[in-house]
Lab assay of single mutants.
Amino acid sequence: MASQGTKRSYEQMETDGERQNATEIRASVGKMIDGIGRFYIQMCTELKLSDYEGRLIQNSLTIERMVLSAFDERRNKYLEEHPSAGKDPKKTGGPIYKRVDRKWMRELVLYDKEEIRRIWRQANNGDDATAGLTHMMIWHSNLNDTTYQRTRALVRTGMDPRMCSLMQGSTLPRRSGAAGAAVKGVGTMVMELIRMIKRGINDRNFWRGENGRKTRSAYERMCNILKGKFQTAAQRAMMDQVRESRNPGNAEIEDLIFLARSALILRGSVAHKSCLPACVYGPAVASGYDFEKEGYSLVGIDPFKLLQNSQVYSLIRPNENPAHKSQLVWMACNSAAFEDLRVLSFIRGTKVSPRGKLSTRGVQIASNENMDAMESSTLELRSRYWAIRTRSGGNTNQQRASAGQISVQPAFSVQRNLPFDKPTIMAAFTGNTEGRTSDMRAEIIRMMEGAKPEEMSFQGRGVFELSDERAANPIVPSFDMSNEGSYFFGDNAEEYDN
Rank of each mutant, 00 (worst) to 15 (best):
T6R: 11
E11M: 07
E14F: 01
T15E: 00
T15W: 10
R19Q: 10
R26I: 05
A27F: 05
Y40N: 12
I41L: 15
T45S: 04
K48Q: 00
N59Y: 14
S60I: 02
L61H: 00
R65D: 06
V67F: 10
V67Q: 10
S69Y: 07
Y78G: 09
L79D: 04
K87T: 13
P89Y: 02
I96A: 03
D101E: 13
V109T: 00
D112L: 12
D112F: 12
E115Y: 11
G126I: 14
D127M: 09
D128S: 13
I138R: 06
W139L: 12
S141E: 06
T157C: 13
M163Y: 15
S165C: 04
Q168L: 13
A178P: 13
A181W: 13
V190D: 06
I197E: 12
N205L: 01
R213S: 03
K214G: 05
K214W: 05
E220R: 11
I225Y: 01
I225L: 15
K227S: 04
T232M: 10
T232I: 14
T232R: 01
A233S: 08
V242K: 04
V242D: 13
P248N: 07
G249E: 14
A251W: 10
A260W: 08
A263P: 04
L266P: 05
G268P: 03
V270C: 07
A271E: 07
C275F: 04
L276R: 13
A284G: 14
A284S: 12
F291W: 12
E292G: 14
L298K: 13
L315M: 01
A323F: 01
L344Q: 08
S359M: 07
S359E: 00
T360W: 10
G362L: 11
N368M: 00
M374L: 05
S376Q: 08
N395K: 03
N397C: 12
A411C: 00
S413G: 12
L418C: 15
P419T: 06
D421M: 14
I425L: 15
T430M: 15
E443D: 15
M447K: 08
E449A: 04
K452P: 13
P453H: 02
S457H: 03
F458Q: 10
I475S: 05
S478C: 13
S482D: 10
E484C: 11
N492W: 12
A493C: 10
E494G: 15
